[in-house]
Design a protein around this nucleic acid. Structure first.
Lengths: 248, 248
DNA sequence: GTCGGTACACTGGTCTGACCAGTAGCCTGC
DNA sequence: GCAGGCTACTGGTCAGACCAGTGTACCGAC
């Protein structure tokens, strides 16, 4: 016979539990309102500080939002990947994860997204990619910031086409963390115009592969581009870790 | 010129921000202690309720843990995937992410882990896999629970070989969420012995592929196994979403 | 000396009550 | 009919209090 460790249950935890359950079960739908803190206080039979700590936890989980002064009470929010984004970001910044691992992961995600996009794209998606690419082409002459914005937009379209929120969010997070890690090194990048032109022709190739529904080709292009652009920041000894992904 | 929307910044948010920053930057390492609430109160110059709400948020994010009575103060925790698991689970419950997306994601992660394992494995790793497989073989006769444990152990070895914590953690999380989503359906699974035998031969094949450094082969086997085992729980209309991953 | 118990100083958890700035909606005066 | 102010609320914050629980340092029994 085994016993389980017993942990005291805090009052605010049970409040969280009940409200959470109501939201998950659909009893409380997004857009609906919770009673005011003072009202909840009497309903749960606890002090206001307890209620407030519970609401803080729910707010941190992006389940509710409360604004001061609103007589309608705290609002129940629709599920969003924001919380996922935050927790993944924290994990990715934790020590054991270096640039090599991040880049590996990003090559995996990016490659898969491109593969899915190439295989699942509709004609509408293709025109969307066309306009995104066109925006990038114009961006070249409007400076790096503008070009970068168009670049992100292009990737967002691809992400949307792949139709998998998990993939999209993970990719965003890893991309952000990678940029955070090497942003100081990027400051000194010279020759931006030729860089932009190279990026542009890469994206054109990717679009061709997607247009011809060549999933493996699109995936390989994406991974190769990541390697070409970022491998220089990875310690030389760890670069072999990235190679297997290029061959797949 | 553009203006940005201005949102009032709560006092507890700035407390969270500072402590979070200290943890992320490594100034506060896991296992170390925060000052007591009353001490933080004077350091930040805010009331105790504000401090407590901040600590609640950090605790919900699994960054700290506080126990009543402990004179050493709240403990800084190591980054853990618990928060990631929670937010992914919530998202999965909320329809934006269905079993199809989860499975897609898992096929991507599992496939990549197997690919990396096959290409990076050392001889030591191979013997590790051999013993893990042997444990599974013995587990068949010791009931499903025992077998399942050995199965998880086998996957952990593969994960370790692939040498990417992000990949490993994400895989674990997605695996857990998938199992939670279909656990009631698994209850009714009959014919467990033949199921175990099938699993076993699958793992033997995987091991062969890894032994011969056949990354693509190992990856394909992993993805195919996931599809064969779980596709039946995915709505028929969404199964085509999984197909492109099998072809890669 | 070691060991067991105990006292104490402190912790976090909770409650009460208070004040403030802000909001929504009513309600007045034009 | 409408602009403006009024009011009754809201959430955000603080202060102070009490309690149950914990770790440690001390102390006596052996």
């Amino acid at each position: 016979m085994r016993f389980e460790p017993v942990a005291p249950v805090r009052a605010y935890e049970r409040v969280v539990e009940q409200i959470e359950q109501a939201v998950i079960s659909g009893e409380l739908k997004p857009g609906e309102r919770l009673p005011s803190e003072r009202e909840l206080m009497t309903q749960f039979g606890v002090g206001r500080s307890t209620i407030r700590e519970a609401l803080r936890v729910l707010q941190a989980a992006e389940m509710i939002r409360s604004r001061p002064g609103d007589p309608r009470g705290p609002e129940v929010l629709a599920a969003s990947p924001v919380a996922l984004h935050r927790s993944m970001h924290r994990l990715a910044r934790a020590d054991h994860v270096g640039l090599a691992e991040l880049l590996q992961f990003r090559m995996i995600l990016d490659g898969s997204a491109h593969l899915l996009a190439a295989e699942l794209r509709t004609d509408d998606d293709l025109t969307g990619l066309d306009t995104a690419l066109e925006a990038m082409r114009e961006g070249v002459s409007h400076g790096y910031a503008e070009f970068s914005r168009a670049d992100v937009a292009f990737h967002e379209v691809i992400a949307r086409i792949s139709r998998n929120p998990l993939l999209v969010v993970s990719e965003e997070v890893v991309r952000g963390v990678v940029l955070e890690l090497i942003e100081d090194k990027l400051e000194h990048a010279s020759n931006r115009t030729s860089l932009m032109r190279a990026w542009l022709s890469h994206h054109a190739e990717v679009l061709d592969a997607i247009r011809s529904a060549d999933g493996a080709g699109a995936a390989h292009l994406a991974k190769q581009a990541l390697y070409d652009n970022y491998a220089e920041y990875v310690p030389a000894g760890q670069r072999p870790l990235l190679m297997p992904l290029l061959r797949s």
